[in-house]
Each structure stands twice: as C-alpha cells, then as structure tokens.
Amino acid sequence: MTEWIEICALEEIPRQGTRKVKSGDAHIALFRTQEDEIFALADRCPHKGGPLSEGMVCGKHVTCALHSWNIGLADGKAAAPDVGETPTYPVKVDAGVVFIQL
C-alpha cells in the first residue's frame, strides 16, 4: 500500500485554482473546485502535453491553457469529441491538509 504524502494546506490552493507539485521527475497538477473538492492529475494534457496546472478550473473539469481541451478532473478523460486520457492520482483532505498518493 502506497502511503499518503502531505502536500499543503487546503487554503494554499485557491478556489477554482491550481498548484503545481513536483516529486522527483513527476509533475502533478493539483486542483481545487468551487465546492472545495481536490483532484490531482499528471500535469500533461493528453493533446499536446500542455501543463494542465495552467488551465482554468470550471465545474469538475480543467480547460487546458494551450488549445482549450477540457479534461475531467475525476477521471482524467478529455471531453468528447476529443479523445485522450491523462493519469489521475488519489488525493484526500484531512483536517484542512491535502494528501496525495503517488
């Protein structure tokens, strides 16, 4: 079982905002929705590798900053008719602290 790694306080991610997380060579994008849900995706758009952490968070998807693909935060899947998928990471919030499994 992989362990939960502490990342930051929930308050350090703006609502409808993102943060970049680096772990070794892995680049991860952390998202916080309007409803304070937290999601983590690999920081690469399945389209042309754009950093999803620079996108705009709307509802439960992020719109990539490079070519406006919409990627689902929960499943990492591109919204139709685009096709593609980016890896997701398990996250949880415990007492206002954000944890991630790598």
């Binding site: 703006p14 409808q16 754009g50 950093p51 620079e54 968070v57 900053a65 490079l66």
Partner: peptide
C-alpha cells in the same frame, strides 16, 4: 478574479508551447 483569467493574465507573461 484571477481564477477567471486566462493563464497569461494570471501569470502576467505569455505561455509558450513547452510551458
């Protein structure tokens, strides 16, 4: 609202294809 701005206006610089 910075979160409602395109990344360029949030980061005050122009994003390029490699990020």
């Amino acid at each position: 609202d910075p979160q409602s701005r395109f990344i360029n206006e949030r980061a005050h610089a122009n994003i390029q294809k490699d990020g």
